[in-house]
Amino acid sequence: MDSTITTAAEENTWGGGNRPLGASYGKLMMWFFLVSDALTFSGFLAAYGFSRFKFIETWPIADEVFTHVPFFHGNYPMYYVAFMTFILIMSSVTMVLAVDAGHRMKKNSVIWYMFLTIIGGAIFVGSQAWEWATFINGDYGAVETKGGRILQFVKADTGERAALNDFAKTIPGDRVAHENKNGIWFYDEGYRPSYTVNEVIEGFKTNSNIVVRTETINAEGEKMVLSRQESLSKLQSAVQVVEGANLIHNEYGSRLFADFFFFITGFHGFHVFSGVLINLIIFFNVALGTYEKRGHYEMVEKVGLYWHFVDLVWVFVFTFFYLV
């Protein structure tokens, strides 16, 4: 029988040193990590989809949330995110060029391309930070109802959004600050919005051009705007003024939107940040000639895989957060 005969080839099959997938150990491990990380991100995005489908009629419209571009005033939905996407794809390109130069053992090209990749990554992380800051600071302000829903304000004649300080009345009043020395149990005052609910409602009453916009999305895919009368009765259930967004309150609409925004873009931003750090380490190794001595630039290829993966994830985050 054939199986009883030990051939040299068979010995090689079980003797180790085989590469059935034609990839080195390090590269395979990087792929293992990337697949598991892809599953993590998919879990987050699927959870986002879950919450969104649960509140499909009241979910915030991304175009109306992310409308800012640094150094420019006005309403520019998506342009900045599109720019960020392009930056990340561009840095992916310089990374793959670095890998290509590494294959051809061109040390100086690798250095340059790695450098450009790091710059691209830094620009992206910076943009992300700016995006967060803008989101946290907020735009127009809104009020939150007893049920935790958000009521925004629009101008009745133009349909444009109205900021709270466009119409809210300033009612002078004495406010006794609770001080440390007076309390048995003292809580810091914390964050206070610029107006009280009462000031917003009074301002609303005197300003006939302001109406309330609810979270509900109508058949045209736009947020529902109430009449003056409905607005006023809706405002009776307002309990607090919300400016900006955090994990508990969100002036743009559903608070889950802010939670997922912070969590998913934060997790991705953390990946980009660590990617930049790893790229930096490899950059210095290349510059010191470590891989030149080793005879191959596979390390650049491995961090390259990670870097492209970060780009790949962003493509999905971009779609599901900003486009869909």
Partner: peptide, 25 residues
């Protein structure tokens, strides 16, 4: 979503060199 998957395909296939790997991997 379809355009996203198209982009993902080309990033994985050409930037991550999956096109050059063995089909099993």
């Amino acid at each position: 979503i379809i355009l996203t998957l198209v982009k993902a395909y080309y990033i994985a296939w050409d930037f991550m060199h999956l096109r050059d790997e063995k089909s099993a991997l």
